[in-house]
Amino acid sequence: MPHFDLPLPELQRYRPASPPPEDFDAFWEKTLTAAREHDLDARFEPVDAPLASVEVFDVTYAGFGGHPVKGWLLLPAGTSEPVPAVVEYIGYGGGRGLPHQRLLWSAAGFAHFIMDTRGQGSGGSVGDTPDPVGAGPAYAGFMTRGIEDPHDYFYRRVFTDAVRAVEAVRAHPLVDAARVAALGDSQGGGIALAVGGLVPDLAAISPNVPFLCDFPRAVTLSPRPPYQEVALYLRAHRGAEERVLRTLSYFDGVHFAARGRAPALFSAALEDETCPPSTVFAAHNSYAGAERSMEVYRFNDHEGGGAFLQDVQLRWLPGHLRN
């Protein structure tokens, strides 16, 4: 597949022109304040998993609206003192899966929390968290659920769940609450970027080929789902573009990046038509933290760096999570 987006020198300079809504910070402050009116009620139930190297906990905590959200917590076997934690968010359509599917970070010596994504969990990996909130007309998928009002939008609930996931893992006595990182691939990377802008004291973030960035460009450039869901919605709902883009502006990774402070390791793939590289660079180039870096995979599509990127993360992240 050929490169289809801006040349790399232009990507390295690219900044989107769309500003955040004036009440962006107030919107998220009110959203998280409302969520915290519900007791977090983080419960960690031991699981008898056939795994010798980790202890597994089935986690339930209160997310948006007090709704129960599931997750896994994996601790290196024999952990007796608080250890740093990695919170992972899942790609589009997937759920938390089964504990044995995600052993990388516990094998590296960290507590590993995997958040289930509400309403998803039937695409690639299984999930256990319903989304009890209804919405108006939507195109198939999740991108347009409640898209004409930011208060109703699907990702308002998901991003709130994600912030509460950090609070839940910090509540465990064997997690060092001062050393928590957030990461994910694609949708998970976009969620990690949002959490980086909403939780001011994370130790690090690592968004890999992040989704949910630079919406005005992404929905007119990407020929694939999930961004294509928005374009197809607007094809049917003529005249809704202004309302839709206003809603999306409250969830744009570019605006969260401008509020992020933790050290950040990004990655982009220059043949990625799902999350076009310019949208990833838009977030990276807007990132406010003093330490940011970008891994570029010139000949890869949405798989990005894959295991090669994980190797970089395994070498980079300990420097920010170890004492």
Rank of each mutant, 00 (worst) to 15 (best):
T117M: 14
G95I: 00
E37L: 10
G190V: 04
A182C: 15
A35Y: 03
F4G: 03
N285G: 15
N323D: 11
Q313N: 09
R102Y: 13
L74P: 02
E229G: 01
D301Q: 14
A204S: 12
V47N: 09
Q101D: 15
G197P: 07
A34Y: 01
G109Y: 09
L75N: 02
F159V: 08
F154D: 12
D214M: 03
K70M: 06
C275Q: 08
W105S: 02
D311R: 12
T129D: 01
P84G: 07
F27I: 08
A140Y: 10
V280F: 00
P150L: 01
G121L: 03
G146T: 02
P50W: 14
P99I: 04
A282V: 10
L103M: 15
F281V: 07
Y14N: 05
F110V: 00
A108G: 11
P216I: 01
W105C: 05
A269L: 05
R145S: 05
S122Q: 14
R259F: 03
F154N: 08
G97C: 12
R96G: 01
D161I: 01
P225C: 06
R315K: 13
R315W: 07
G78Y: 14
G65S: 11
V312E: 15
M115L: 15
L245F: 14
D252M: 03
P207F: 01
G319L: 03
P210F: 00
L98C: 01
V69W: 03
C213M: 07
F159S: 02
D58L: 10
A290Y: 04
I90T: 07
D116G: 09
F215R: 07
A192L: 02
F113S: 02
N323L: 10
A171H: 11
A268G: 05
R145T: 07
V158E: 10
V87C: 15
F154L: 10
P16E: 10
T144R: 04
M294T: 06
A135I: 00
P207H: 08
V169R: 06
V166G: 11
E45W: 09
R235S: 12
H172L: 11
E167M: 01
R298T: 13
H302K: 07
A231D: 05
R243I: 01
F110T: 00
H100W: 14
I90F: 03
P263N: 07
H320V: 03
G304T: 04
G119P: 05
